[in-house]
Design a protein around this nucleic acid. Structure first.
Lengths: 134, 134
DNA sequence: CCTAACCCTAACGTTAACGTAAATCAATTT
DNA sequence: AAATTGATTTACGTTAACGTTAGGGTTAGG
């Protein structure tokens, strides 16, 4: 659908289906101040910006961030920090998050290696089974 | 400490301190069948293999895996699968985990990009503040 | 007019992963 | 001998992130 400004909009059900989650989850994210869609009457109307936000929420979740941390990132992103103190706090925050992501990159690399091993052992045994006739 | 085979061993407290978690957590992982240390009397004695396992558990956690999934990975790793069906199931599992890790790599890349943006905006404003005398 | 398919709020229930407290035991230290 | 330190079990408490149920409103189709 489109709203009065000819922008694309979504119902809660559409977004739920698109991202394979329940409407309950989306409402919950709103309750936690991660979303704030428009309304027509009681009904929530999500614009594209809301949809992007939701995508970011789910991305954060896949990386093991809590909703509180994700909210934190949003506030960081939205904030019009103007004092030097605020700006420096923000830089500190981004660096912290970056450190977590780097750690995760390491973790992924090591887990991938272990999966390689498991897989190799597995293929070897399969080949062995084939050779001995099966 | 070392055990009768001259292998290095650890108390629960030592491991807890090393990995910056509580003994309670370590006992909980055991309760969930993720660890199975030896005992002398009542006291748990962890060998190096246990320590490695613990490291793997924490790595999995940092990547957002549940303890159940981690246990799953362990069983996969330990399993002496011998039937073709089992081996193929294992390959399927590793591929699934791999897909998750790839997804996370993507997620990390995108989040990093967004952090770059935030940081850039932040530095620009800081420079601006400097320029206008402060 | 009815019902099906949406939407809503409110509120209680659930699960994972521990935290925390109580009571006890064993080995050191003072 | 008394106290500290670190281990144990048992069991109830807690938080996050929803699930689920109950009750109700509104629009499109038959």
């Amino acid at each position: 659908m489109t709203n009065q400004n000819n922008e694309v909009t979504y119902s809660i059900g559409e977004l739920a289906k698109e991202f394979d989650i329940t409407p309950r989850s989306i409402r919950f994210y709103e309750e936690q101040d991660l979303l704030s869609p428009e309304r027509t009457g009681q009904t929530r109307i999500y614009c594209n910006k809301d949809r992007v936000r939701l995508k970011l929420i789910l991305r954060g979740k896949r990386l093991g961030f809590s909703l509180a941390e994700i909210k934190n990132l949003f506030e960081l992103y939205d904030s019009n920090a103007n004092s030097m103190l605020q700006l420096e706090a923000m830089l500190k925050m981004t660096e912290q998050k970056r450190a977590i992501l780097r750690q995760q990159l390491d973790d992924i690399q090591m887990l991938m290696n272990e999966l390689d091993e498991v897989e190799k052992r597995c293929r070897d045994e399969l080949a062995d089974l084939q050779k001995r006739g099966c």
